[in-house]
Write a protein that binds this DNA or RNA. Sequence first.
DNA 1: CGGGTCGTTGATACGGATCAAGGCGAGTGG
DNA 2: CCACTCGCCTTGATCCGTATCAACGACCCG
Lengths: 240, 240
Amino acid sequence: MQTKQMHHMEIPVVCRSCEARHGGVCSALTPAQLSELSKHSSRRKVEAGNEVIGQGESITSYSSILNGVVKLSKVMADGRQQIVGLQFAPDFMGRPFLGESRMSAEAAVDTEICVFPRRAIERLIHDAPDLGHLLHNQALKELDDARDWMLTLGRKTAQEKVASFLWLIANHSDPAEGDRSCFELPLSRADIADFLGLTIETVSRQMTKLRKDGIIQIENNRHITVPDLERLAEAAGIDQ
Amino acid sequence: MQTKQMHHMEIPVVCRSCEARHGGVCSALTPAQLSELSKHSSRRKVEAGNEVIGQGESITSYSSILNGVVKLSKVMADGRQQIVGLQFAPDFMGRPFLGESRMSAEAAVDTEICVFPRRAIERLIHDAPDLGHLLHNQALKELDDARDWMLTLGRKTAQEKVASFLWLIANHSDPAEGDRSCFELPLSRADIADFLGLTIETVSRQMTKLRKDGIIQIENNRHITVPDLERLAEAAGIDQ
DNA sequence: CGGGTCGTTGATACGGATCAAGGCGAGTGG
DNA sequence: CCACTCGCCTTGATCCGTATCAACGACCCG
């Protein structure tokens, strides 16, 4: 009996090999809570370009990113668009304590997420202080990032903006071969423009300029190599 | 004895007439917690232009705003500056769970704050779930605001930016005579420029244009009247 | 081969920055 | 009381960085 009981308290099978077990929402739960949550949650693939939730839609579920990249964006009535954040694994997605989404979330590349029903998460926030604390901390980090980006949007030149973007991606792409200096861009030129408050053409020109200045190398439009991260930071106007 | 005990559980004298009792941090505490916290906290006046904390300084205390306005700003190595947020009463100020401040906080107008030692707050966050929840919620609201502002910084014209700023102030100044349409600007033209990612001259020109278009009236540079808030929202590119 | 998407490059336009001058109110000292 | 200065704001002239418009190249897929 006791072994049976113990069994109930172990990590659910579906969660054992989950990429988000460490650092993600689920790392803040007890085995029992995780087991309960896993019963109501489901894994979902989202292809690049597909929406997870749209601006103004009501929030019926939350999720966490298992792998991939999701872009958060706002659009104005006349179509002008601004990407206001990028989310990577194992980020939690969704706005707790709010009825409807104030922005859209769209997969930037093929992405997998784990979807939780709204009720389950909101109950857990109250029952599991660690979860509340983890989400609070993530919100604070996102706030820091958003404010850093405000400086980029408001005061940096096009050149510095593009370099800042590359710097951000360099620091968020998991160092596959332990190498920060070589990575794949998760965004198209159009997305980068929407993230930086620029046009496609300006982004393209600045990328070319960074390449000609020897600060980056470009292969296949998406694959970037940075010989000297220090020089990139300098070009981004980042003070160290 | 029991009355004595009860007495200990009442609202501390210094807090009774406090402007931040409702809605602020202290509203999430029990009388006992409030009593304990009040022993270590102190009221402080900060004159317009004075710093509460500087970028890069270590965080030794938190505070809440009793009245006034505080601007949060970031500066680059070469002096370029961006205001990344405004805080009003009864907002909580400070970045929990972080050793040093990533921006400076400076009183925009004469301001009064209540200062709490760092330790006391961090202990309370763990002991009082309501406080954690309140701070989490404020962080989420600030994140929403920051992201709204990213759209303003990245995609709006100078005209729309200035109108957006006036709209923000109109919606945050307490309706003294129950009138949203008449208010005092808490920021100088230079501050407004730093908030909008513009220059002083451009801010001034756009203010003049809004005045000539009849969307606002200006008295003494700081006092603004908005005959029709709807028209202001339109000029700000805000979709309703 | 044709059509589509995505990115680059060039020519030109324009919005906001920059540079420069001056106005206005408050405080100061004669 | 006036002259003076100082901070803050406005206005004008000009410049420059990025947007806009347009053409074209690279690649993919049918």
